[in-house]
Design a protein around this nucleic acid. Structure first.
Lengths: 145, 145
DNA sequence: TAGCAATAATTATTATAGCAATTAATTGGG
DNA sequence: CCCAATTAATTGCTATAATAATTATTGCTA
């Protein structure tokens, strides 16, 4: 393997780890019978306890594209967890709100998700975290648009 | 934000970074007109210069599921870059080989991909890399099946 | 050796990622 | 005020991720 290819290896290891974290979380979500996917949860939790956020802003915050976000909101609405409300001041925009059922869902899931997320980071020190965060932010900046 | 939620934040930052790395690579792949996706490349490069690897093994190495791998190989074969050869000793298995065209494609891409991959890791030190690798491996182990 | 379990690959289905194009609504300049 | 450019959301399309089910083949064992 050429010396240059170590960067391909790092990229691959990073992707594998990220995917494993999501696989683990999704497995637990299924075991707990949450009835939503990890990605749907990422959107759902932004709306709690309430918010006047529209879909473009939601897409930005969750690092998703607007087409993907449209479809996730479709699914969340179909499950009765959210509803779309057209912005009175700009009828192009859709506010997304939690329903009462959606609010209960978030309250039920929140502490459990925190526990699930914790598992990945066992036996890592505060120093590890800081260093890790520094590297990720650096990469993120290096590739900034 | 509860203290527990820092782990959700780390997970999110990791996923965002991983996705940005792939977005950047795919953008460059398109600019260079490679004619394959980043994921197709991940499979293709395993076959160079030659190999007697079957699809299950390829899936394992590339951290993909066998259904995904089947479809990627379908696409690579449709592009004339690979071909399937049934294993004479076990007719359930498919060896995947590079065609002459596939071999040239890998040779053309390899150095350019190395350069592309390098961009993410600018201004990071050897110590950063080692520390980072340690954290990723620890997470990977923590979530081992 | 007949039959059953295990394995490799594929197919089907649902969800997400990303790009391009479309629709509807708004804004700004002449 | 009208039209062109912009913006928000949606739709269509292809590719990847993941699970479940199916098919074909092989291996094991009673």
């Amino acid at each position: 393997m050429s010396q240059e290819d170590i960067y391909s290896e790092y990229s691959f290891l990073l992707e594998k780890t990220s995917r494993r974290i999501k696989q683990y979380a999704q497995k637990k979500f299924t075991e707990f019978d949450f009835g939503v996917t990890v990605d749907q949860w990422m959107v759902l939790k932004q709306l709690y306890p309430s918010s006047n956020i529209n879909q473009s802003e939601l897409a930005e915050i969750t690092f998703k594209g607007t087409p993907t976000l449209t479809r996730i909101v479709d699914l969340l609405c179909a499950k009765g967890l959210t509803e779309r409300i057209v912005d009175c001041n700009d009828r192009r925009k859709c506010q997304v709100h939690l329903t009462a059922s959606g609010k209960r869902k978030v309250e039920e899931m929140k502490p459990k998700v925190s526990q699930i997320r914790k598992a990945a980071w066992n036996s890592l020190s505060r120093d590890d975290f800081e260093h890790f965060k520094h590297v990720l932010h650096t990469i993120y900046q290096n590739l900034a648009v």
